[in-house]
Amino acid sequence: MTDMMTILAQTTDTAEALRQTDPSMMTQMVLILLAAAFTENILLTRFLGMCPFLAVSRNLRSATGMGLAVVFVTTGTVFLNSLLYYKVLVPIQAAGVPIPAESLKLILFIVIIAAFVQFMEMLIERISLKLYVALGIFLPLITVNCAILGASLFMVNKDLTNAESLVYGFGAGLGWCIAIILMAGIREKLKKAKIPAGLEGPGITLIITGIMALTFIIFQGMIQT
Protein backbone atom coordinates (compact mmCIF):
# COMPACT_ATOMS: atom_id res chain seq x y z
CA MET A 1 0.00 0.00 0.00
CA THR A 2 2.71 2.48 0.95
CA ASP A 3 4.63 1.70 -2.25
CA MET A 4 1.64 2.69 -4.31
CA MET A 5 1.12 5.89 -2.41
CA THR A 6 4.73 6.94 -2.93
CA ILE A 7 4.47 6.23 -6.63
CA LEU A 8 1.33 8.32 -6.84
CA ALA A 9 2.88 11.07 -4.76
CA GLN A 10 5.96 11.18 -6.96
CA THR A 11 3.92 11.78 -10.05
CA THR A 12 2.12 14.75 -8.52
CA ASP A 13 4.89 16.78 -6.95
CA THR A 14 7.65 16.80 -9.54
CA ALA A 15 7.58 20.57 -10.06
CA GLU A 16 7.67 21.28 -6.34
CA ALA A 17 10.58 18.86 -5.79
CA LEU A 18 12.48 20.40 -8.68
CA ARG A 19 12.26 23.91 -7.34
CA GLN A 20 13.71 22.87 -4.01
CA THR A 21 16.58 20.83 -5.38
CA ASP A 22 17.77 22.75 -8.42
CA PRO A 23 18.69 26.40 -7.95
CA SER A 24 19.58 27.15 -11.57
CA MET A 25 16.81 29.11 -13.27
CA MET A 26 17.33 27.83 -16.78
CA THR A 27 17.61 24.14 -15.88
CA GLN A 28 14.52 24.53 -13.78
CA MET A 29 12.52 25.92 -16.69
CA VAL A 30 13.67 23.12 -19.00
CA LEU A 31 12.73 20.55 -16.38
CA ILE A 32 9.29 22.06 -15.84
CA LEU A 33 8.77 21.92 -19.59
CA LEU A 34 9.86 18.29 -19.84
CA ALA A 35 7.88 17.29 -16.76
CA ALA A 36 4.72 18.92 -18.11
CA ALA A 37 5.11 17.40 -21.55
CA PHE A 38 6.28 13.87 -20.65
CA THR A 39 6.21 12.70 -17.03
CA GLU A 40 2.96 14.47 -16.26
CA ASN A 41 1.48 14.31 -19.72
CA ILE A 42 -1.85 16.04 -19.34
CA LEU A 43 -3.67 13.52 -21.49
CA LEU A 44 -2.02 10.24 -20.54
CA THR A 45 -1.60 10.73 -16.80
CA ARG A 46 -4.23 13.39 -16.05
CA PHE A 47 -6.87 12.19 -18.51
CA LEU A 48 -7.70 15.69 -19.68
CA GLY A 49 -8.95 16.54 -23.15
CA MET A 50 -10.13 13.00 -23.84
CA CYS A 51 -13.23 13.95 -25.81
CA PRO A 52 -11.50 15.86 -28.62
CA PHE A 53 -8.68 13.32 -28.42
CA LEU A 54 -11.10 10.51 -29.26
CA ALA A 55 -13.05 12.53 -31.80
CA VAL A 56 -10.32 14.29 -33.80
CA SER A 57 -7.59 11.62 -33.88
CA ARG A 58 -8.98 9.81 -36.94
CA ASN A 59 -6.51 11.34 -39.36
CA LEU A 60 -3.10 12.89 -39.05
CA ARG A 61 -3.89 16.23 -40.69
CA SER A 62 -6.69 17.32 -38.43
CA ALA A 63 -4.93 15.88 -35.38
CA THR A 64 -1.93 18.08 -36.08
CA GLY A 65 -4.15 21.14 -36.54
CA MET A 66 -5.99 20.48 -33.29
CA GLY A 67 -2.72 19.76 -31.46
CA LEU A 68 -1.12 23.01 -32.55
CA ALA A 69 -4.23 24.99 -31.63
CA VAL A 70 -4.14 23.45 -28.15
CA VAL A 71 -0.44 24.29 -27.66
CA PHE A 72 -1.19 27.86 -28.65
CA VAL A 73 -4.22 28.32 -26.43
CA THR A 74 -2.86 26.57 -23.30
CA THR A 75 0.32 28.65 -23.41
CA GLY A 76 -1.66 31.86 -23.63
CA THR A 77 -4.45 31.08 -21.19
CA VAL A 78 -2.34 29.47 -18.45
CA PHE A 79 -0.11 32.55 -18.47
CA LEU A 80 -3.05 34.98 -18.47
CA ASN A 81 -4.82 33.04 -15.73
CA SER A 82 -1.63 32.95 -13.68
CA LEU A 83 -1.33 36.75 -13.96
CA LEU A 84 -4.99 37.15 -13.05
CA TYR A 85 -4.77 34.83 -10.07
CA TYR A 86 -1.47 35.94 -8.53
CA LYS A 87 -1.46 39.62 -9.50
CA VAL A 88 -5.15 40.43 -9.05
CA LEU A 89 -7.17 37.88 -7.07
CA VAL A 90 -4.63 36.97 -4.39
CA PRO A 91 -3.54 40.57 -3.63
CA ILE A 92 -7.18 41.68 -3.39
CA GLN A 93 -7.90 38.86 -0.98
CA ALA A 94 -4.71 39.60 0.98
CA ALA A 95 -5.78 43.24 1.29
CA GLY A 96 -8.73 42.06 3.33
CA VAL A 97 -11.52 42.16 0.76
CA PRO A 98 -13.63 39.05 1.43
CA ILE A 99 -13.73 37.51 -2.04
CA PRO A 100 -13.59 33.72 -2.38
CA ALA A 101 -10.54 33.52 -4.67
CA GLU A 102 -10.61 29.73 -4.61
CA SER A 103 -14.15 29.53 -5.96
CA LEU A 104 -14.08 32.66 -8.06
CA LYS A 105 -11.15 31.36 -10.07
CA LEU A 106 -13.33 28.71 -11.70
CA ILE A 107 -15.62 31.29 -13.28
CA LEU A 108 -12.88 33.77 -14.12
CA PHE A 109 -10.64 31.15 -15.75
CA ILE A 110 -13.37 29.87 -18.02
CA VAL A 111 -14.33 33.41 -19.02
CA ILE A 112 -10.68 34.22 -19.80
CA ILE A 113 -10.38 31.08 -21.90
CA ALA A 114 -13.55 31.78 -23.87
CA ALA A 115 -12.52 35.40 -24.42
CA PHE A 116 -8.97 34.41 -25.41
CA VAL A 117 -10.21 31.92 -27.98
CA GLN A 118 -12.66 34.43 -29.43
CA PHE A 119 -10.00 37.13 -29.56
CA MET A 120 -7.41 34.82 -31.13
CA GLU A 121 -9.88 33.78 -33.78
CA MET A 122 -10.40 37.39 -34.82
CA LEU A 123 -6.71 38.22 -34.60
CA ILE A 124 -5.54 35.25 -36.64
CA GLU A 125 -8.16 35.99 -39.27
CA ARG A 126 -6.69 39.49 -39.70
CA ILE A 127 -3.01 38.52 -39.58
CA SER A 128 -2.75 35.27 -41.47
CA LEU A 129 -5.62 33.89 -43.47
CA LYS A 130 -3.63 30.73 -44.13
CA LEU A 131 -3.20 29.96 -40.44
CA TYR A 132 -6.85 30.87 -39.87
CA VAL A 133 -7.99 28.31 -42.41
CA ALA A 134 -5.65 25.71 -40.91
CA LEU A 135 -6.75 26.27 -37.30
CA GLY A 136 -10.20 27.63 -38.16
CA ILE A 137 -12.56 24.81 -37.19
CA PHE A 138 -10.49 23.75 -34.19
CA LEU A 139 -10.40 27.05 -32.36
CA PRO A 140 -14.07 27.15 -31.28
CA LEU A 141 -13.87 23.49 -30.21
CA ILE A 142 -11.13 24.40 -27.80
CA THR A 143 -13.28 26.27 -25.31
CA VAL A 144 -14.81 22.97 -24.27
CA ASN A 145 -11.48 21.12 -24.19
CA CYS A 146 -10.97 20.37 -20.53
CA ALA A 147 -7.19 20.15 -20.97
CA ILE A 148 -7.15 23.93 -21.25
CA LEU A 149 -9.08 24.66 -18.05
CA GLY A 150 -7.31 21.72 -16.40
CA ALA A 151 -3.87 23.15 -17.15
CA SER A 152 -4.89 26.42 -15.47
CA LEU A 153 -6.26 24.62 -12.41
CA PHE A 154 -3.13 22.49 -12.04
CA MET A 155 -1.05 25.65 -12.41
CA VAL A 156 -2.73 26.98 -9.25
CA ASN A 157 -2.37 23.62 -7.47
CA LYS A 158 1.33 23.54 -8.21
CA ASP A 159 1.97 27.09 -6.99
CA LEU A 160 3.93 28.10 -10.09
CA THR A 161 5.28 31.62 -10.58
CA ASN A 162 4.12 33.63 -13.61
CA ALA A 163 7.20 32.80 -15.71
CA GLU A 164 7.05 29.15 -14.73
CA SER A 165 3.39 28.96 -15.64
CA LEU A 166 4.15 30.22 -19.15
CA VAL A 167 6.59 27.32 -19.58
CA TYR A 168 4.18 24.91 -17.88
CA GLY A 169 1.33 25.91 -20.18
CA PHE A 170 3.49 25.41 -23.25
CA GLY A 171 4.70 22.04 -21.95
CA ALA A 172 1.21 20.82 -21.13
CA GLY A 173 -0.05 21.80 -24.58
CA LEU A 174 2.97 20.19 -26.22
CA GLY A 175 2.37 16.94 -24.34
CA TRP A 176 -1.25 16.86 -25.52
CA CYS A 177 -0.17 17.67 -29.07
CA ILE A 178 2.42 14.85 -29.11
CA ALA A 179 -0.11 12.36 -27.77
CA ILE A 180 -2.82 13.18 -30.33
CA ILE A 181 -0.35 13.11 -33.25
CA LEU A 182 0.99 9.70 -32.13
CA MET A 183 -2.58 8.45 -31.79
CA ALA A 184 -3.62 9.68 -35.22
CA GLY A 185 -0.62 7.92 -36.76
CA ILE A 186 -1.62 4.65 -35.13
CA ARG A 187 -5.30 5.01 -36.03
CA GLU A 188 -4.49 5.61 -39.69
CA LYS A 189 -2.71 2.26 -39.77
CA LEU A 190 -5.56 0.70 -37.80
CA LYS A 191 -8.10 1.32 -40.57
CA LYS A 192 -6.98 -1.87 -42.29
CA ALA A 193 -7.14 -3.98 -39.13
CA LYS A 194 -10.02 -6.30 -38.25
CA ILE A 195 -11.58 -5.27 -34.94
CA PRO A 196 -14.61 -6.76 -33.12
CA ALA A 197 -17.68 -4.59 -33.73
CA GLY A 198 -18.16 -3.63 -30.08
CA LEU A 199 -14.55 -2.59 -29.70
CA GLU A 200 -14.46 -0.35 -32.77
CA GLY A 201 -14.05 3.40 -32.29
CA PRO A 202 -13.75 4.46 -28.67
CA GLY A 203 -12.99 1.00 -27.27
CA ILE A 204 -9.88 0.27 -29.29
CA THR A 205 -8.71 3.88 -28.99
CA LEU A 206 -8.88 3.64 -25.20
CA ILE A 207 -6.85 0.44 -25.19
CA ILE A 208 -4.17 1.98 -27.41
CA THR A 209 -4.14 5.05 -25.17
CA GLY A 210 -3.61 2.74 -22.21
CA ILE A 211 -0.58 1.16 -23.87
CA MET A 212 0.68 4.63 -24.75
CA ALA A 213 0.26 5.70 -21.11
CA LEU A 214 2.29 2.66 -20.07
CA THR A 215 5.14 3.70 -22.32
CA PHE A 216 5.03 7.25 -20.97
CA ILE A 217 5.49 5.92 -17.43
CA ILE A 218 9.08 5.16 -18.46
CA PHE A 219 9.81 8.89 -18.48
CA GLN A 220 8.96 9.11 -14.79
CA GLY A 221 12.37 7.83 -13.71
CA MET A 222 14.18 10.33 -15.92
CA ILE A 223 13.26 13.54 -14.16
CA GLN A 224 14.22 12.88 -10.58
CA THR A 225 16.96 14.41 -8.56
Binding site: D3, A197, G198, P202, L206, I207, A213, I217
Partner: peptide, 26 residues
Protein backbone atom coordinates in the same frame (compact mmCIF):
# COMPACT_ATOMS: atom_id res chain seq x y z
CA UNK B 1 3.87 -7.57 -1.07
CA UNK B 2 2.09 -8.22 -4.31
CA UNK B 3 -0.14 -5.44 -5.56
CA UNK B 4 -1.66 -4.80 -8.92
CA UNK B 5 -0.34 -1.24 -9.09
CA UNK B 6 -1.27 -0.81 -12.73
CA UNK B 7 -4.97 -0.76 -11.80
CA UNK B 8 -4.51 2.37 -9.69
CA UNK B 9 -2.19 4.07 -12.14
CA UNK B 10 -3.40 5.80 -15.31
CA UNK B 11 -3.02 2.91 -17.81
CA UNK B 12 -5.32 0.72 -15.70
CA UNK B 13 -8.06 3.31 -16.05
CA UNK B 14 -7.83 3.22 -19.83
CA UNK B 15 -7.89 -0.58 -19.97
CA UNK B 16 -10.82 -1.04 -17.58
CA UNK B 17 -12.92 1.65 -19.25
CA UNK B 18 -12.11 0.15 -22.66
CA UNK B 19 -13.32 -3.26 -21.54
CA UNK B 20 -16.48 -1.82 -19.97
CA UNK B 21 -17.22 0.14 -23.16
CA UNK B 22 -16.51 -2.96 -25.24
CA UNK B 23 -18.86 -5.20 -23.27
CA UNK B 24 -21.69 -2.65 -23.19
CA UNK B 25 -21.43 -1.70 -26.85
CA UNK B 26 -21.14 -5.32 -27.87
Amino acid sequence: NYQWVIMIMPPGAFFVLAVVVWVMRG
